[in-house]
Design a protein around this nucleic acid. Structure first.
Lengths: 294, 294
DNA sequence: AACTATTGATACCTAATAAGTATGGAATTG
DNA sequence: CAATTCCATACTTATTAGGTATCAATAGTT
């Protein structure tokens, strides 16, 4: 017995007419007649009565029809599900992240992920917040690590952490006894800022911090990622205000990190993704990225 | 995809070794390798990983294994059930009955049965009680309609009805004013009896009835069925005492039926069958033969 | 009532495919 | 390091599915 036999039987049972069933199956009528007879011989059971050129199901045949229908239904569903399992475990996960993300942590999560999803290919895109939002909306990213706020009703947003700011200046050996001295120094220093087109809210916060310190920053340079900003500071081109978490990640650079006091302005780092994206790998990633932050 | 593919897959999944699976399937290893590859190609899903001469199931493969097991289990069960349906509906039902059974009723039940079990072949055997008991015990009859008592622990017995007796004499126009006149007449008449070897208990009852009427019967003829007995009475060869139910069945014969008074002797008609006989047709017959008597 | 058309079954033939053998490349085992 | 074993692939053979022709029986049409 093969599935072919069951399919032929099922079709004859539906048509109750060998010739019509053969047409439906794209074979001619004699092989269909033979295959049904083979099935009946193998079972030792008459599934159809043929009388006066009319075909009808026996009681055994009627029962078998119901069972065969159920078997085909379950087989089709199984095929579909194995295909889904395969697809979610052997596809691609496109991850966007902002340049200030602590990549060591991201790497740890991805390393752990290879054990669970050995066939998943991860693509990492270091791109700014607004660009990520668009890409997520267009389905060109599966998940993004970016800064709030995320103005999009298509995306689900989950808080990762709150990141305060620190001042970063060239490693000059300078020290400041008071925050006022620091402010005076910064007022006379050239500033290197993020390109506000990429993260307008982030820029607004920097302006607010400077305002709270009592000066207006002189923005001389703009860059679109923190590596460039830090390298420019290290080279002595200017100063900046950056998220605190970068201190840990870039601890070895020849720059000075100066913590601020009494300025409760910070930035919220979030995960964003489309809730309609049902990828198993994505779900795993979100769950594990979040829990490794605890 | 055919059942062959699923069986090959299932076996490889169990063995996690192509060569061992091939041995189990009585084929050589290369065709097994190809058939698995064909299955994976058709599904578009990798079911096994082959690494370092080791075979393991992918997640999709592990899921599919469970599904394929369930599909095979259901198919095997379905095959078994269709075989049972076929067997119970297209076999044979061997029915024994005593000659005094009201055949019109039996015929009615069998006619109704053809609608429910159109492929059942019924074989009717008009045979005496003791012969029926032996045949039932030996499995040569499926069911018997016979007279109690049925001394057999292999058989289940169910009461059909209680049948009193009546006197049957040739249609002579004779009438009797009292039961004593009848008794005097019978005392001087030749008796036609059942062969007591076939139904000893039945014979004993007849002897008892005659005793209660005050005479001993002169048994001149013996026969082994009521048709013969009745024909002999009609022909004037003698008289007999028979079950009351025969009056309805043989109402047109040229004989006289004379009911007896104050003689509470009757015969019990029963169904008997082996409880181990699970035939659906038998079950239907018993149920319907009983209920049509109500 | 006679004739024609249609049905499912069977015989014979051809095309397609399953399975066999030989062998390769890679890894394991002794 | 050599021998053995594993699964995959190439080529060949055996088996089987499906095709065509046709039969016997019945239904439908005239």
């Amino acid at each position: 017995m093969e599935l072919r036999h069951l399919l032929y039987f099922k079709t004859v049972a539906e048509e109750l007419h060998f010739r019509n069933a053969a047409l439906k199956l794209f074979i001619s009528q004699p092989p269909l007649s033979r295959q049904i007879k083979e099935l009946e011989d193998e079972l030792g059971v008459l599934l159809f009565t043929r009388k006066n050129k009319r075909v009808s199901l026996t009681d055994a045949g009627a029962y078998f029809k119901v069972e065969v229908d159920a078997i085909f239904a379950r087989l089709e569903e199984s095929k579909s599900i194995v295909q889904q399992i395969h697809k979610s475990e052997s596809g691609e996960l496109k991850i966007g992240y902002i340049s200030s993300v602590y990549q060591s942590h991201l790497a740890d999560v991805l390393i752990a992920m290879r054990d669970v999803f050995p066939h998943i290919k991860t693509n990492l895109f270091e791109i700014p917040t607004l660009t990520q939002i668009k890409a997520l909306e267009q389905g060109n990213l599966d998940v993004g690590i970016l800064r709030a706020p995320v103005h999009s009703d298509q995306l689900t947003v989950q808080t990762l952490f709150f990141d305060p700011f620190i001042v970063v200046i060239p490693a000059s050996g300078l020290t400041f006894n008071t925050q006022a001295e620091l402010a005076a120094y910064l007022k006379n220093s050239p500033f290197i800022f993020f390109n506000k087109d990429f993260a307008p809210s982030y820029n607004d916060k920097l302006i607010e911090i400077c305002g709270r310190m009592g000066f207006k920053p002189t923005i001389v340079h703009e860059a679109n990622n923190v590596h460039s900003i830090l390298q420019l500071i290290e080279a002595g081109l200017g100063v900046s205000i950056l998220p605190y978490s970068l201190k840990r990640q870039y601890g070895n650079l020849k720059v000075s990190y100066i913590e601020l006091e009494n300025i409760p302005v910070n930035t919220e780092v979030v995960l964003a993704y489309k809730p309609t994206n049902k990828s198993a790998a994505l779900r795993w990633f979100i769950e594990n990225y979040l829990s490794e932050l605890e």
